[in-house]
């Protein structure tokens, strides 16, 4: 079945239209988005030919991970520039500083690894994305930690869900090396942010078989699109849908 590019646009306004994160699957995005797309005349949109597509196969998965790591790195960069972090308690401050470092290191890894994998053909490497974190209050502990919790749990779910699509054993192992660190982060953020001592691996995320979240790229990109954090438009037309 031919896939139809969908433009995810949650805060549409008539004049200043946000850049859209496009994803390839209709099913997971939701009816309201579908409607807004169907009524869209595309005026003011970027020419689809100019929009970066993540690609197919392992390249697509690597670019997908690179997008998520760019998002996390950009978020924690803003956290460390914010007034909440400046005055946070010692443990929280150290945890968030480490998360910043780790996510930047992950981001730089994907940039280097993808560039090497495509023999330096930059047209196949996801460009540096632009972000809009105006909905996060970096002076407010709750706003920062609630966002961090979502990003870390999403990272775990994304890597767990992408693993089965990876075809090169070395990439699978590297994804495994990263996802457990994301899970360590998620547990840390949960335990400093949430009151329940069991929140680090709470029942709302770990199922009755003791399994963590795992979500396909389409679902993750749909959820990320809804945050409005990513300004730069890109498509994921060749990634698996479920």
């Amino acid at each position: 079945m031919k896939k139809i590019p969908v433009k995810v646009n949650l805060r549409e306004s008539s004049n200043t239209r946000r850049q859209f994160l496009k994803i390839g699957s209709l099913a997971v995005v939701g009816t309201s988005l579908l409607l807004s797309c169907n009524n869209d005349d595309d005026s003011g949109m970027t020419d689809p030919d100019d929009v970066f597509d993540l690609g197919s196969g392992d390249l697509g998965i690597l670019n997908y991970a690179y997008a998520l790591e760019q998002l996390e790195a950009a978020f924690y960069t803003s956290v460390l520039d914010g007034s909440y972090w400046m005055s946070a308690g010692a443990e929280e401050k150290l945890i968030l500083e480490d998360l910043y470092k780790h996510e930047v290191i992950h981001r730089e890894f994907f940039k280097a690894a993808i560039t090497a994998a495509v023999n330096g053909d930059s047209s196949k490497v996801l460009p540096e994305l632009e972000f809009d974190f105006s909905s996060v209050n970096f002076g407010d502990r709750n706003s920062v930690l609630a966002t961090a919790r979502v990003l870390e749990d999403t990272g775990v779910a994304a890597y767990n869900g992408a693993g089965a699509y990876i075809q090169t054993p070395d990439y699978l192992v590297i994804a495994g090396k990263i996802v457990s660190v994301e899970a360590r982060h998620a547990a840390a953020i949960r335990s400093i942010y949430m009151d329940d001592p069991k929140a680090f691996a709470g029942d709302e995320i770990i199922d009755a078989n003791g399994l963590d979240l795992a979500k396909p790229p389409s679902e993750i990109l749909g959820a990320v699109g809804q945050t409005g954090f990513i300004k730069t438009e890109f498509t994921a037309n060749q990634l698996p849908e479920e």
Partner: peptide
């Protein structure tokens, strides 16, 4: 079994962190 194993793996990592 790859995906369930990954899902167990990240739970172990959450435990290790805590």
């Amino acid at each position: 079994f790859l995906t369930p194993a990954l899902q167990i793996h990240s739970v172990e990592a959450r435990h290790a962190s805590e």
